[in-house]
Nucleic acid binder design. Structure first.
Lengths: 201, 201
DNA sequence: AAGTTGTACGAACGATCGTACAATTAGTTT
DNA sequence: AAACTAATTGTACGATCGTTCGTACAACTT
């Protein structure tokens, strides 16, 4: 009905591009966006190095595209599944989805953004800006979800603490193979939300 | 009194080595332990590449030595200054020292271990093992400091949450140049410790 | 049918990486 | 002064990095 034009060549190109970016995001979550090399990517995907390169024109553009692709996966895996109406249940579901996203190793190296954030946080450039942008987006999404709960006095503060628990769980789990890390984060979240519910201060 | 033997050559060598490792830790906190290259290190320190290399024999050994050197700086800057006797005051001082260590940019890229932990957490090898070892050491040090406070029911859980606040502050500050991050962590710590003091559950 | 477009390829580029080894310099010991 | 030792240097290596270029071929347009 809506297939206005389907150029087989472009179609095929976009598919390879998707495959490249999928794999690039996986590699980057383990080796980082610098450790991600075009040659290795080509070898693993069994395509030519120049074939990979041609899709992006520069390594920086490959890195930026990889970040965007990872953000799309994150949105699909964490944000979109949460359908609860605004309120405590929605917040709990969002945090749960995040922990599941990390625990299930949607990316083999744990949370993609935790990895690349620590890698680029002190290096100026477009890649850092893109990562920081998505970070801000995520932070404010959590904050607004928190703010929809009337009992909460300081949404910024609570969002800060909740996200801290999530990232700590990811870090502990990946570095120390600690299976208890996620449970610890869930306890921390539950406890903190209970505290927030009994409106104080 | 105790200068049994002072070989001027060895003395000089150790000094160069210290200079190399100091700079290496600075670079690694920004660019990572992989981004740290022997050639660049040599150029910045105005010594020969082979001169740097000779001190370590391999890049992996340079990375390991850098991690050890950073751990020594961390100990001197965070752990040793805390002289309070076991109890709430000691814990508060320790957390304060950590936040100051990060905020003052003892390493230009923020907390050294935050940076390299995220870089190596998913990559097996001796470097990861060393980083994980220091991470465990720090965690259990915090846990024991927490455990010295009788009101605390679950020291592991509390230590998890407190360290999460610290790392979150570091991450937010470095990536987003957010000056409020540390204050937010201090509020979180204060609030959480107050909650723990009123022995519950 | 011929002509145009887009993807993918192979080969080669200069630069930089980590590493090896022999030569050199400076300080210690005899 | 000679012999020795440890830190440092210069030169060179193979590998890999990102990048450029010309080409091959399939798919679309006319």
């Amino acid at each position: 009905m809506e297939d206005v034009k389907v150029d087989g060549r472009v179609e095929r190109g976009e598919q390879t591009r998707r495959q490249i970016l999928r794999r690039a995001a996986e590699i980057a979550s383990v080796e980082g966006l610098e450790g991600l090399s075009i040659g290795r990517l080509a070898t693993e995907l069994e395509v030519s190095k120049s074939g990979v390169f041609a899709h992006f024109g520069s390594k920086e553009e490959l890195q930026l595209s990889t970040v965007r692709a990872a953000a799309a996966i994150f949105a699909r895996e964490v944000v979109e599944p949460v359908t609860e109406p605004p309120g405590p249940a929605r917040l709990a579901a969002l945090l749960d989805r995040w922990l599941a996203y990390s625990e299930n190793r949607t990316f083999p190296g744990g949370c993609f953004f935790y990895a690349v954030q620590a890698e680029f946080d002190a290096r100026p450039g477009r890649v850092r800006d893109a990562i920081a942008g998505y970070g801000r987006e995520w932070n404010s999404y959590v904050r607004e979800t928190v703010a929809a709960i009337p009992e909460v006095a300081d949404p910024d503060q609570l969002a800060f603490e909740l996200v801290a628990f999530l990232e700590m769980a990811n870090a502990q789990s990946v570095l120390h193979d600690d299976p208890h890390a996620y449970e610890r984060a869930r306890v921390a979240v539950r406890n903190r939300l209970a505290q927030a519910a009994t409106a104080r201060r």
